[in-house]
Simulated assay, not measured.
Amino acid sequence: MSDFFNKIIGQKKSKLVLTKLINSRRVPHAFIFSGSKGIGKFFTAIEFAKQINASDPATQSQINTLSEPFIKYVFALPRGKSESGDDGPFDKLTKSTIEAIQSEIKEKVKNPYYFLKIDNANTIKISSIRDIIRFLNIYYQPEIKRFVIIDDAHLLNEESQNSLLKSLEEPPENVFFVLITDKIEYLLKTIHSRSFVINFENLLEDELEEVLKSYFGIDGVLASKVTKFSNGSVYKAAKLLEMEFESLSEKAIDFARFSVMKKYSSALAIINEINDKYGTSGIKLFIDLINMWFLDTIKEKCSELKDFYYIGKEESISKFNKRFPKTKQEDIIENLNKYSNYFDRNLNLNIISLSLIFEIAAIELGD
Rank of each mutant, 00 (worst) to 15 (best):
D152R: 05
N202P: 02
T59H: 12
E273I: 11
Y264G: 00
E170P: 08
F115Q: 04
S55A: 04
A252Y: 10
I101P: 12
N23Y: 04
G38Y: 11
E246C: 02
I298P: 03
F308V: 12
A267L: 03
V197C: 10
K108T: 01
F31Q: 02
L168R: 06
K117L: 14
E273Q: 07
D86E: 11
L349R: 13
Y139G: 14
L155R: 12
K236N: 02
L354G: 02
F4N: 13
E205F: 08
L248C: 06
G10V: 06
E104L: 03
G40H: 02
P172M: 05
L356G: 02
E104R: 14
F42Y: 09
Y139M: 14
F196T: 12
I144M: 09
F48V: 01
D331G: 01
K225E: 01
P89C: 09
K319L: 13
F177R: 03
L289C: 14
S230D: 08
L347Q: 07
F5T: 00
N174F: 08
A58W: 07
K81I: 03
D307F: 09
S14R: 05
G88V: 10
H154P: 11
V211P: 15
E242F: 07
M261C: 11
L356S: 00
D182E: 01
Y113T: 04
I351D: 01
Y140W: 13
K228R: 12
I52P: 12
S224P: 06
N341T: 10
S96F: 09
T280M: 13
Y339C: 05
L164F: 06
E170S: 04
S84N: 15
T19W: 02
S34D: 13
V226L: 05
G10C: 04
N335T: 01
N137A: 06
V74H: 15
K277I: 03
S167W: 06
D152H: 00
S281A: 10
T65F: 14
V74A: 01
K251F: 12
E314L: 04
L240H: 02
E158G: 00
